[in-house]
């Protein structure tokens, strides 16, 4: 056994260190967990998008992915389970100048918070929602989620999942999201490009990022950390503009990735101003007409 070295005093600076609360690193995510990669991709996108980061807010819910808000050196809110989207809705309506990024997990956004997702997309609330989909509830130790594949094992489906998982891009599309994409954490460059595009786009944008949970999901489903990445590599089918109804995740046949929806329609605030606050439109309040 070697002697554990003391931390070196002067370390080189990671290119994203200016966007990270480095005093809180290392983060809590397990070895091999992909949330860090998706988070890193999100930060790179924020940096590369050219938006005013001083007016950019990250909102998270609860769970592993929900901890992201605690590591980003921007105004950040770690809210209650499932409530990141309505909290972000309040922030945006109070100050339409803010750029809102909701970064959370599949359990938070689509089980306990599913209703809020549906309605924020329907309203076309101007925000970018990034969902790290690790197919289970990681923080609590690997329980079945609304995204767990049929027959997959979890602590609450010890013999196999009897339920059918969500097709998240289809749901986002059906609810009215104006931008919908899906990537895996292995397709980092595409993911970053997608997030950059979504941040720059007004309206409700949704990006699903598949990510391994080796400790809680992988372990029970005979997958080592690298196995999941290899599945992403081998089974990924990049098919932009694919029909959202064909996007069920099937690890045997293939996982369709790409940008599926990119349309424009007026946001909630645009409608609200037109109907209720026409004076705002005349004043050209920043963030509303841009």
């Amino acid at each position: 056994m070697q002697e554990i070295p003391k931390p070196s005093k002067k370390q080189p600076c990671h290119p994203l260190d200016d966007l990270i609360r480095t005093d809180r690193i290392p983060h809590i995510w397990c070895p091999g967990c992909g949330i860090g990669t998706v988070f890193s991709s999100c930060l790179a996108a924020l940096k590369g998008s050219g938006i005013n980061l001083g007016k950019t807010v990250m909102v998270s819910g609860i769970g592993c992915s929900g901890r992201a808000a605690g590591y980003v050196k921007l105004d950040s809110f770690h809210t209650t389970h499932g409530r990141a989207i309505p909290f972000a809705t309040g922030l945006k309506l109070a100050n339409p100048e803010l750029n809102i990024v909701v970064f959370s997990g599949d359990g938070d956004l689509f089980a306990i918070g599913g209703n809020h997702f549906i309605h924020a997309a329907r309203r076309n609330m101007d925000m970018t929602v990034i969902c790290v989909n690790n197919l289970n509830y990681g923080m609590t130790g690997g329980q079945v989620a609304a995204t767990t594949p049929y027959l997959a094992k979890s602590t609450t489906t010890p013999v196999g999942n009897p339920e059918t998982p969500f097709n998240l891009p289809l749901m986002a599309y059906a609810c009215g999201a104006t931008y919908v994409a899906r990537w895996t954490m292995l397709h980092t460059r595409d993911l970053t490009d997608s997030i950059t595009e979504a941040i720059g786009k007004k309206g409700f944008s949704f990006i699903e990022a598949l990510s391994p949970c080796p400790v809680n999901y992988g372990r029970r489903n005979k997958q080592k950390p690298l196995d999941m990445l290899k599945v992403y590599q081998k089974k990924a089918i990049i098919k932009n503009d694919a029909d959202p109804s064909t996007l069920d995740i099937d690890f045997e046949k293939g996982i369709i990735l790409g940008k599926f929806v990119d349309v424009d329609r007026p946001t909630f605030i645009e409608h609200y101003d037109k109907i209720y606050r026409p004076s705002r439109l005349q004043e050209n309040v920043p963030g509303l007409n841009s």
């Binding site: 990671h14 290119p15 690193i25 091999g32 860090g36 990669t37 988070f39 890193s40 991709s41 954490m185």
Partner: peptide
Amino acid sequence: HYCEIICPEFAIF
């Protein structure tokens, strides 16, 4: 930069 962007830990660049 692939090591940099795949790293979940901000540990390599």
